[in-house]
Simulated assay, not measured.
Amino acid sequence: MDNNTPILELRNVVAAYGRIQALKGVSLKVHAGEIVSIIGANGAGKSTTLMAICNVVPVVSGDILYQGERINDVSSERLPARGLCQVPEGRRIFPRLTVTENLEMGAFFRRDTSVIRQDMDRVYELFPKLRERRKQLGGTLSGGEQQMLAMGRAIMSRPRVLLLDEPSMGLAPLLVQQIFRIIKEINEQGVTVVLVEQNANLALQCASRGYVLETGSVVMEDDARALLDNPDIRKAYLGE
């Protein structure tokens, strides 16, 4: 893969839930090292886009390319081992496993035991609360701590590309700011991030570029700063 090839690309992707077409020809590009935000109203197709990338929602037509290779037919279970990992909406941690056991599940396909220990320490540095709670069951954590755990578990897979679906949902404002600081830190450590987020203002402040979805179609793409300054975007998504 040369430097000009996007690390992740969707080409005219159509995806459907049964007979309901959720994505209507979505095309987007993500280059290595970027944070790319996908914004839009509820039901616009933001989460469906991430699930289509991971082959959770069937792609009817179009191509999904990761590191230059078509991955339409690669099962979602195999993608983390290839460096493509999703933190789904709603966290979906293992409630009956401890924090440490949840993190170990993120590295279940890895065999580099000494490096896994280093990555565990890295997660605990990013999320000191998880270190404090490491022997606690996942289901007893607060919503914010569960979000940290879900992100930490994804980091344990050593992702090249991290797909984040609504990381701020249901969190107090102070925790939201903390989560977004950590997203930037993860990115600065070399992980490419695709961010689906209802809070368009924060999402675009965090990102280098953004895409706007409406009813399953991309209606705008631009640098994140340009989108933040766009009066139509400010009116539609930033409450102005």
Rank of each mutant, 00 (worst) to 15 (best):
P6L: 08
L8H: 11
E9W: 04
R11S: 13
V14Q: 08
V14L: 06
A15D: 11
A15R: 05
Y17R: 02
Y17C: 00
G18D: 05
Q21D: 06
G25Y: 02
S27V: 09
K29D: 14
A32Q: 15
V36T: 08
I38W: 03
A41T: 13
N42M: 04
T48M: 11
T49H: 05
L50A: 12
A52Q: 11
I53G: 01
I53Y: 02
C54Q: 12
N55S: 15
V56C: 07
V57P: 08
P58G: 02
V59W: 00
D63C: 01
D63N: 12
Q67I: 00
G68K: 02
G68D: 06
E69S: 10
I71F: 08
N72K: 06
D73Y: 03
R78M: 07
L79P: 05
A81E: 09
A81I: 00
Q86K: 14
Q86S: 05
G90C: 12
I93Y: 08
I93N: 10
F94W: 03
L103I: 12
G106W: 11
A107V: 02
F109T: 14
D112M: 07
T113K: 14
S114G: 01
R117F: 00
Q118W: 03
D119K: 12
M120W: 01
P128Y: 06
K129I: 12
K129F: 01
L130G: 07
E132Q: 14
R133M: 14
Q136A: 07
G138I: 13
G139I: 09
T140I: 03
L141S: 11
S142K: 05
E145Y: 04
E145W: 03
E145P: 02
Q147Y: 05
A150K: 12
G152W: 09
I155Y: 06
R158F: 00
R160C: 01
L164D: 07
E166R: 08
S168G: 06
G170N: 11
P173L: 10
P173C: 11
L174Q: 12
V176Y: 01
Q178G: 02
F180C: 10
I183R: 08
K184D: 04
I186Y: 09
E188A: 15
Q189K: 14
G190V: 08
V191C: 13
V191D: 03
V191G: 04
V193P: 00
V193W: 01
N199R: 13
A203R: 01
L204C: 11
Q205W: 00
S208C: 09
G210S: 12
Y211N: 10
Y211E: 06
L213V: 06
G216N: 09
M220K: 15
D222Y: 08
R225Q: 14
A226C: 03
L228T: 01
D229W: 00
P231G: 03
I233A: 02
R234C: 08
G239K: 10
E240F: 11
